[in-house]
């Protein structure tokens, strides 16, 4: 395709404007929430009049804190469970492919096509009516893990699809047990996929409303509380807690970037050391 013949400076101006607009679209709502959280008027903080009232209220509001804790627990536990099970499933399917590989694959992916709300209701029916277990965190975690397993499965499968399992053969011939081969070779090469899978499943379950809602009864989670405020009025605490979460995400990414840089530096110096020894 040929670019239309415009002056280069015009093009640069246009693309720069487009870039700015894109970032504005992404970040203005987030900045708005942050501004609102530190303003006296949380509905229209322009110009902001600074206040920490929202944070003070948050500290004293047990429901929000409890909801944050519950969401965090659900997110973490679901991420660990679904990523671990998805890894095991893919390892089994790809390392030891059998006649039923296609069928098993479809069965693993089926939960993807069940609407969250249906999964929530049917899990409630199953645990509550059939097994007589009331809603609690553990049941919510398991139900979330069922759905998140599928996402983790897809993310990891894409990466390990191209993985050469004969590398494990090589490792074993050179003295590694199957577990060592997995830890020394498969795991480092699959690490990016495992990281994306756990991150995605954490976010999915942390933010999940429909599944958790039916299984938790009176136990609050962050999305449930946020949804509740729609009916009973949006409170400043919601802006405060959202801002804190965004802050945590930004800090988390910064930490990842720094650790990657540090890790590369350390690898290089380690290699230098080996060279010195030999």
């Amino acid at each position: 395709m040929r670019w239309p013949s415009l002056a280069p400076s015009l093009w640069i101006g246009f693309t720069a404007a487009l870039l700015c607009a894109t970032y504005a679209f992404l970040y203005v709502p987030i900045v708005h929430v942050a501004l609102a959280s530190v303003s006296t008027n949380t509905m229209w903080p322009y110009p902001p009049r600074w206040s920490t009232a929202a944070y003070t209220a948050l500290i004293h509001n047990r429901v929000y804190l409890e909801a944050l804790m519950n969401s965090a627990i659900i997110g973490l536990a679901t991420a660990v469970l679904s990523t671990a099970f998805a890894t095991a499933a893919i390892f089994g399917l790809m390392r030891y492919p059998g006649r039923h590989r296609g069928k098993l694959l479809l069965l693993y992916l089926a939960p993807l096509f069940v609407a969250d709300i249906v999964l929530g209701i049917s899990t409630m029916v199953f645990t509550n009516l059939f097994m007589g277990i009331g809603g609690n965190l553990a049941v919510a975690i398991l139900a979330n893990a069922v759905r998140c397993f599928t996402y983790a499965f897809l993310i990891i499968a894409v990466q390990l699809y191209r993985y050469d399992w004969r590398l494990n053969d090589a490792a074993m011939v050179f003295g590694a047990t199957p577990v060592q081969a997995f830890r020394e070779v498969t795991l480092p090469l699959a690490a990016p996929a495992l990281f994306s899978a756990s991150l995605s499943t954490f976010i999915l379950s942390f933010n999940n409303l429909e599944i958790s809602f039916y299984l938790l009864g009176a136990t609050p989670t962050l999305p449930a509380v946020a949804w509740g405020t729609l009916r009973y009025g949006i409170r400043p605490e919601l802006f405060a807690v959202t801002t804190l979460i965004n802050l945590a995400v930004i800090l988390g990414f910064a930490a990842i970037l720094i650790s990657l840089k540090v890790g590369r530096h350390r690898r290089l110096t380690q290699a230098e050391e080996v060279r010195g020894l030999t």
Binding site: D164, R166, L167, D169, A170, A171, V173, F174, E184, V185
Partner: peptide
């Protein structure tokens, strides 16, 4: 020990 056709270096 073994040397593989595709080398299979890590």
């Amino acid at each position: 020990a073994m040397v593989f056709q595709e080398f299979l270096l890590f």
